[in-house]
Nucleic acid binder design. Structure first.
Length: 497
RNA sequence: GACCGGUUCGUCUAGGGGUCUAGGACACCGCCCUUUCACGGCGGCAACACGGGUUCAAAUCCCGUACCGGUUACCA
């Protein structure tokens, strides 16, 4: 049997980092088992669903590389089938009409409202106390015919329990007494989540339902629906949640853009690296190598590598250097400096284009120079943004000097004001403008001035690149070329900043 | 409140009765390399929530407590 899994986002916002990981695990499982990965858009909440949200989610999935194997299913298109299922259960006596007037819930604080009420009820609540539950068929029919509005609720048995074996959490049980007669169909004819999910998963022939742990208790309700429908249930695998630092809920409201996948693309993450990081949040491979590319992730993925406890996404909103999880940043840097150059170049090209730093020559007569430059400067970069920011001086005359670099490496050694132009002169007269020739010139200047090589090179770095850090400076000088090097070393602009 | 999950270094995690004086990764710190640095190499710091059992032996099994999370809608 081929496995079939689905990722089922509801288009009511951005692509949450936790949803992205759910999509990832579904995708990995599908590929690992040579099955199908499907996408179902759960757009039945018409008030909250938007086009923008949908395209943002789809874009995010595309960026991560999770293309669906079949056409995307829109849940709202299946409403008729859901209704049919509800009426079938009603017909068979497995569900009943509830004529209780619909309550008006104020949009605000619904969740708190519900929790408060539940707290008051304590454990005394009888889940079967609906007075319409035992109405005879004739009574129910006549009320319905008279035009009285009704919702359809599932008739959950008085005693017994649901049980299933979760592929991650193991055996699960829940007593019927703890499950209410949930509404299947709203009084306005609108099918509800649990019914819709079950019907669609059946229709799509889903074999494994892989989703967040927040659905663990829902699963029992859905099992009741599978049973009422007389259908086989799929395998369930629930995933631990991704929490904010301190173990609190991670939300856009409280934590901002950091929860949205869009941000990572904008900030210069490489999809491969981010996928790798995401996979390690709640899952771990058998051996100790944590750097796993797309194919390696697929190959090593399995449910028993999934951890059962929630993971905290670690970042510090007050520290720009730690705007997101350290490990994610490190992972991205690792990919940038080790991935094949021909895979990196197109990504850098996009970045430079976006910042108006790209020149067509980089693909033609200056291709070689460009590749060498990228290979040189990528060594200490963390994101693709660094190519256009810290690396800007390699592609443009219009770059800024980092004030910290000026103070630390220039102004602390006032002599550099004379020494660096002198270095420029010496380099200008150099026939052999290669690494060794440049280094020899630097060393002889150091000897003459009785200073350390580091002082000269650090100072030169500021004037040449505007930065305090970077790759081997001698190589950088060679890469920049004589003309630019001489010009920048003679410039006094930085001294006046 | 009730029900359901969870709890190993700061963070992500390995481990599921003896091999655990608890392994790896990130971060942090030190040293080395070097021509400076956010590269690299080597090393260090640092954890089994707590209390009871069971057992010759418990991070691992059982019970309780605490804390955290989820669910508790005519939302998804």
């Amino acid at each position: 049997m081929t496995t079939r899994v689905r990722f089922a986002p509801s288009p009511t916002g951005y692509l949450h980092i936790g949803s992205a990981r759910t999509a990832l695990f579904n995708y990995l499982f599908a590929r690992n088992t040579k099955g199908k990965f499907l996408i179902r858009v759960e757009d039945t909440d018409r008030q909250r669903s938007t086009e923008e949200s949908l395209s943002s989610i789809l874009d995010g999935l595309k960026w991560l590389g999770f293309a669906p194997d079949e056409e995307i299913v829109f849940q709202s298109n299946n409403a008729d089938k859901h209704r049919l299922a509800a009426f079938k259960l009603l017909e068979e006596g497995k569900a009943y009409r509830d004529f209780t007037p619909k309550e008006d819930r104020s949009e605000k604080d619904i969740k708190r409202d519900i929790a408060d009420r539940a707290r008051k009820q304590g454990d005394k609540k009888d889940m079967r106390d609906n007075k319409y539950r035992e109405l005879t068929k004739a009574e129910s029919d006549s009320k319905a015919e008279a035009g009285e509005p009704f919702a359809i609720r599932l008739k959950v048995a008085e005693t017994g329990k649901t049980s299933f074996e979760d592929a991650v959490y193991g055996p699960q049980e829940r007593d019927y007494a703890d499950i209410e007669d949930m509404v299947l169909l709203r009084s306005d004819g609108h099918p509800l989540y649990n019914l819709a999910v079950v019907c669609d998963d059946l229709e799509m022939r889903i074999t494994h339902v892989i989703r967040g742990q927040d659905h663990l208790t829902n699963t029992h309700k859905q099992i009741l629906i599978y049973e009422a429908l007389g259908e086989e249930k799929p395998v369930f695998a629930h995933l631990p949640l991704i929490l904010a630092p301190g173990g609190k809920k991670l939300s856009k409201r409280a934590h901002g853009e950091i929860v949205s996948m869009d941000l990572y693309r904008e900030k210069g993450f490489i999809a491969d690296a981010f996928r790798n990081f995401l996979a390690l949040l709640g899952w771990s491979p058998k051996d100790e190598n944590e750097i796993l590319n797309h194919d390696q992730l697929i190959e090593s993925f399995s449910f028993d590598g999934i951890n059962r406890s929630n993971a905290a996404f670690n970042f510090d909103a007050n520290n720009p250097k730690r705007w997101t999880d350290d490990k994610a940043l490190w992972m991205n840097a690792e990919y940038i400096r080790t991935m094949p150059l021909d895979e990196l170049i197109p990504l850098v090209r996009e970045e430079l284009r976006g910042e108006k730093l790209w020149r067509e020559e980089y693909d033609e007569e200056e291709k070689r120079w460009f590749e060498e430059t990228i290979d040189l400067i990528r060594e200490r970069f963390y994101t693709l943004k660094d190519f256009s920011e810290q690396g800007r001086a390699f592609f443009s005359e219009d770059f800024d000097y980092d004030p910290k670099a000026i103070n630390k490496n220039l102004k602390k050694h006032p002599d550099l004001r004379e020494w660096l132009p002198e270095l420029a002169e010496r380099l200008e007269g150099l026939d052999d403008f290669t690494h060794d020739g440049i280094f020899a010139a630097v060393k002889s200047l150091c000897a003459d001035k009785e200073t350390k090589v580091g002082v000269i090179l650090n100072g030169a770095r500021v004037l040449l690149t505007g930065q305090a850090v970077g790759p081997s400076m001698v190589s950088a000088i060679e890469q920049l070329g004589k003309e630019k090097t001489v010009m920048r070393l003679k410039s006094q602009v930085a001294w006046n900043e």
